[in-house]
Amino acid sequence: MTPARTRRDAFPVNWTARALWLALVVYCVYAAQILQITWSRFVIGMDQGATFLARMWPPNFGPQKLDLIIQGMLESLQIAFLSTAAGILLALPLGLLAARNLMPSPVCWGARGLIALCRTFHPVIVSILFVKAVGFGALAGVLALVVATLGFVGKLFAEAIEEISMKQVEAVRATGASFASVLIMAVVPQVMARFVGFGIYQLDSNLRNSTMVGIVGGGGIGATLFTAYQRFDYDVVLAILIVIIALILLFELISTQIRKVFQ
């Protein structure tokens, strides 16, 4: 009896996976060393953080400041809605063109290339580009977020369309329906609920992003926030952060309700 030999191995060792995990750990240690991230550096950072936090409290909701904050927030809100609406309108055809089950492959690759391009750069970088291209203000912010929306939602739309049941499409096609009618009666009903979900998600994400584009000159609350930082008005910074958190939470509640309508 040699159990070690006769017993079949139920859990064979995957040496490649182990090697990859090891490589990951080694690289992380190496990167921390290069960047001189050490425990003592971290402790110094914590000290500074405590001072910073102390200077933030209490938040400054003085009438003048509040007026600035509200104006900035309203502008951010407008940037978010405009860019989401325009971005989704553009993403609808782009997502369709990128869907491999409905479009010939050259068209798909073109559309997918455009989507990939929109997704390549972080909205901050795109914002900087648009601020330089069209000048300071909300327009640059809107355009930057339209690009972000196009890249993200376009890709999700294409994937949603690729996951539809082709049997339903086939049946409608077999009645002699035109391509437009097939889209309306066989494709849209299958993807509508998901599209609404993506749209709401993107609006949510654009709300967050719209508070950021102002930092690089794209309009909205970000500009106010940045000014407050530069003037060391940390109590105003905290006030702004609280308002942003409140808005995001409020929208979270609203979006849950909207989703329930489109099932």
């Binding site: 339903q168 009645t175 329906a177 035109s178 009666m185 009903p189 299958q190």
Partner: peptide, 20 residues
């Protein structure tokens, strides 16, 4: 498409548009 209008089809898995 015009010829298909004259040809009805019934499918094994019904192929109804489920959400309509």
């Amino acid at each position: 498409r015009q010829a298909r209008r004259r040809i009805g089809m019934v499918f094994q898995e019904y192929n109804l548009v489920e959400r309509l």
